[in-house]
Simulated scan of single mutants.
Amino acid sequence: MDNKLAGLPPLDDSYELTNEQTEAYRRDGHILLRGVVNGAELEAYRPVIRDLVMELNYQTKPMHERDTYGKAFIQIINLWRKSEAAKRFVLARRFGKIAAELMGVDAVRVYHDQALFKEPGGGHTPWHQDQIYWPLDTDKTITMWMPLVPIPEEVGSMTFASESQRKGLIDRVEISDESHRTLQQYIDGKGFRKVNYGAMAAGDATFHSGWTLHAAQGNPTDAMREVMTIIYYADGLTVAEPDSKARQNDMRAFFPGLKPGDLAATELNPVVYRK
């Protein structure tokens, strides 16, 4: 075994959820869980993820020359395919079990992971629904969003529109100034309760449904907001008809070789937990 792998904690044990937590997630479409990864574990994995992001970062434009999406974060996708050490983190049974139990399913697959590093002075992330990008017709999708460094109050967690996941698809508009304006009006009009969990410790994590409306504040600090995310979906789903360019692109990228109606399962989508 590689020496680097030998020193990495396996993350195979369970994080125990309460009935109140699973009920809250299913009601609100989001939840904050404290201490999903502990300090020693984070000390082992954070350098792996951080170094990969810095190595693979393609963003060269200065902040003032970028569009709203480009100002929001450095985004690196599928780190687990680029490093055996990152693979151990992304495919961790602990995280998959939480995802399955929150959704109430027996097994979950990874859709993809993505590092989202918001630079000092980075802009806000507009209101959006993740699942407008995913060719999956289901409510059994979930994203884990985990800071690798402490996040202060002025940066905070993401902000969620509670119970908005119950509406399913609201608008196909992709992450942009338009999505922020349109969906902010929708949220205010429907009277959804907006929740921001404030400061988060490294290793805390939020989980939210693919249909839950959410946004994030900018980063006014001089420190990088280092966040790792993993998207899961219930095992046994089929690929939906890609009814937008965004979903067509995602189908090619994350379900290569599949067509609508096929079982949503490729080598890019391993099962990470089965009850």
Rank of each mutant, 00 (worst) to 15 (best):
Q248T: 14
V37Q: 09
E154P: 04
P220C: 02
L263D: 10
P9I: 11
A85Q: 03
R46D: 10
L17K: 00
K97Q: 09
K82H: 11
R88I: 04
A161L: 11
P62Y: 06
E20D: 12
Q248Y: 06
T159D: 10
F192E: 07
T212D: 07
E174A: 13
L11K: 04
K194A: 00
G7K: 07
A72Q: 01
K167M: 08
D188W: 08
E20Y: 00
R252M: 11
K97S: 01
A246P: 11
V155I: 08
Q184L: 15
A92V: 02
A202S: 07
F254L: 11
P220N: 01
N78E: 07
V105D: 04
T238Q: 14
G210K: 03
E119D: 09
D222K: 14
I74N: 04
T238D: 13
R66E: 03
A253S: 14
G210I: 04
R46C: 13
N269D: 05
I132Y: 02
R93K: 07
V149R: 15
N249I: 15
A115Q: 06
L11I: 10
V149H: 12
R27P: 07
L8Q: 04
D177S: 05
I76M: 04
E174R: 08
T206M: 04
L79F: 03
L116A: 03
P150I: 05
M144V: 11
H128E: 12
P9H: 14
D235E: 02
G236A: 10
I98T: 01
A253H: 08
L183N: 01
V90D: 01
Y273D: 08
G104C: 03
D28C: 13
R50C: 13
E226K: 10
L56Y: 13
R109P: 04
T221Q: 07
P260G: 11
Y233L: 09
M251D: 00
G104D: 02
K190D: 09
N3Q: 11
G218W: 01
G261L: 14
A240C: 09
K275G: 12
D139F: 13
Q129P: 10
W80E: 09
Q248W: 08
A253K: 14
A216P: 05
V272C: 03
T68I: 14
A199H: 03
A99I: 02
D222Y: 09
S162P: 08
T22L: 11
A240T: 06
H208N: 04
S162I: 09
A234R: 07
R225P: 09
A199K: 02
D250E: 14
D171P: 07
A234V: 06
P135A: 12
